[in-house]
Structures are given as C-alpha cells and as structure tokens.
C-alpha cells in the first residue's frame, strides 16, 4: 500500500473541496438567481469537465499553467516557482476538473430556497449577505454538504488530469490513482490491490453518507400548490 500517495490524494481532495466551497458558492448563487440571458453559456462552461476527456482538459491546463502560458507566467513571476508538476498545479487542475461536481449540487440546493423567504428577510431589515448566511445557507445545508462530499470523492478518484498536469513525482504529485497504475505497470498486484481497496472502501463510505443525508431532506419549506 502506498501510504504517501493516499495521504497526498486526501490532502488534494480536502484542499480542492475547500477552494470549491469558497469559489463555488458565490458562482452557484449567481447561477441560481441571475436572470442574465447568456447565463446558459456559463452553465455550459462549468459543466465542460463532465464531458471532456481528462487529457483535453489536462493538455490546455498544461499550456496555460506552463511558464509561457498566461497563468503560469504570472504565477512564476509572483512566487518564483512553476505550477506544472507541483502540488499547486495539481490543485488548480483539480478545482477546474471538479467544478461541476460542486457547482451543480450547490446551485440546485440554493435554487430550492423559496425566494419569498429572502424577500421576507429583506423587509425585516436584514441585508442580502446576512440573509444568505441566516436563511439561504441553513436551508440548503444538506445540498451544499453533498456537493462537497461529491467533490471530495471525485478528486480522490482523479487520474487523467493529474497525470497530465502533475506527472508522477513521488510524495509531490503521485496520487493514489497514479500509484495504483504504477504498481500495476510494475506487476506489483499486491500493492495495487491494497491501495485500490482503500480507495474503494473510502469512496463507498463517503457516497453512502451523502445519499443517506440526502434522504433526510428538509421537508419543511412552504409547499407550492
């Protein structure tokens, strides 16, 4: 079993989930409430990672993050290190690749909050931001949690993008999925099997937890007749 790779995968998944919570919530709120006519284009872009082969996303990311790419150049001049084949680059790739897995459940959860509750809150003198914290978040908590869990689980299972952007540097970018591939290539089936089993059991537990939580959806907002 490759402990370092599993820990790296967990670390990457945790950071990705956290970043996507911070970036995904505002984006999802905008998607759930905006009436902008070109919104569907943004929705399409957000969902691209669902259908694109990971190699395509990885290829473009490699170009963008590389020293001659727009993002990579800026990052290098700021921090003095390059993004590809580093944990930072891996994180950027994971965030993009898992974007729909957080944004879609978040948006569904936020859109499920009755708009009149927001209006009631505003009329009671509570600001939009406070209303978001005091009404919207508690009422969409299960949906947001399941989005986070899905993101976490999806990042754990990432392979193609990670390989394209991160390569296979032990302790730095070798995640669990790559370690399994490596072990199989080296005919070390025992090690591959142990790592794979850990991922399988962990992913199952995480998903079982998510669906278990979703069963107990708040059944209490005003019914629409």
């Amino acid at each position: 079993m490759d402990r370092a790779a599993i820990l790296l995968s967990l670390r990457l998944a945790a950071w990705t989930t956290l970043l996507l919570l911070m970036l995904g919530l505002p984006l999802s709120w905008w998607l759930a409430t905006s009436r902008w006519r070109w919104k569907f284009l943004v929705e399409a872009v957000v969902s691209l990672p669902l259908v694109l082969p990971p190699t395509v996303l990885g290829f473009y990311l490699l170009l963008a993050l590389g020293p001659r790419g727009p993002l990579g150049g800026a990052f290098e001049s700021l921090f003095g290190s390059t993004l590809p084949f580093s944990f930072g680059g891996l994180l950027v790739a994971s965030v993009l690749y898992s974007l729909p897995f957080s944004v879609q459940p978040f948006t569904a959860a936020l859109a499920g909050v009755d708009r009149r509750l927001l209006e009631a809150s505003w009329c009671l003198g509570v600001s939009r931001f406070q209303t978001f914290l005091r009404v919207v978040l508690p009422l969409s908590a299960t949906g947001i949690l399941s989005g986070m869990v899905l993101t976490f689980a999806h990042t754990l299972g990432e392979f193609g993008v990670v390989l394209m952007v991160g390569g296979n540097l032990e302790g730095r970018t070798r995640t669990a999925s790559i370690s399994i591939y490596d072990a199989v290539q080296a005919l070390d089936y025992a090690s591959a099997g142990r790592t794979a089993l850990v991922l399988l059991v962990f992913s199952f537990l995480v998903l079982a937890l998510t669906y278990g939580l979703q069963r107990r959806v708040w059944a209490s907002w005003p019914t629409r007749s």
Partner: peptide, 16 residues
C-alpha cells in the same frame, strides 16, 4: 431593508 414595512406574504413565508 430601509423602508421599515411589515409585509405579510400570502403564504406567510415563515423561516422553516
């Protein structure tokens, strides 16, 4: 927020 009106919605819109 700044009008201080009390609005009673048709279906009350209580925070569930």
């Amino acid at each position: 927020q700044r009008r201080r009106v009390g609005l009673l919605f048709q279906d009350y819109a209580l925070f569930p």
